[in-house]
Amino acid sequence: MSASAHAHEEHGEHISSLKSYLVIFGILLVLTVVTVGVSRLGLPSDISIMVAIGVACVKAFFVAGWFMHLKWDTRFNLLVFLGGFWFMLVFFGFTLTDLGSRGNLIEANDNFSQRADMGAKYAEPAHHVEGSGGHH
């Protein structure tokens, strides 16, 4: 961090050429076509979601880098922006860990009496009145 706020920070005065913006726009269009195409291939769902997020991240990289001038901005602003995603990933990670591992312990012990009653790991919610056997 500059020793004191007094030093004149080099403000992102960078002016990109019209051509570079159009090139970036072209890349984004191509990536959009790619992501649509990939989804047509019928990959198994967990792989296809990884690919979709991957392509979206690449597009995000281009938008943030060139359109949002992060390439020529101070390192700290880039850190601030990426820092936000760290907390988002923490939120996703811990919550999905919980959702994914509910009832593991009981199943891991193959507790028959428990399994018969539990039915699906997560009792399908009986949303219409004629309940699906479980409590409603």
């Binding site: 312990l105 009981i106 507790n111």
Partner: peptide, 12 residues
Amino acid sequence: MDMQVPPKDALN
């Protein structure tokens, strides 16, 4: 962990 894992022969 002991409290979370019911034994098999437990009265349900």
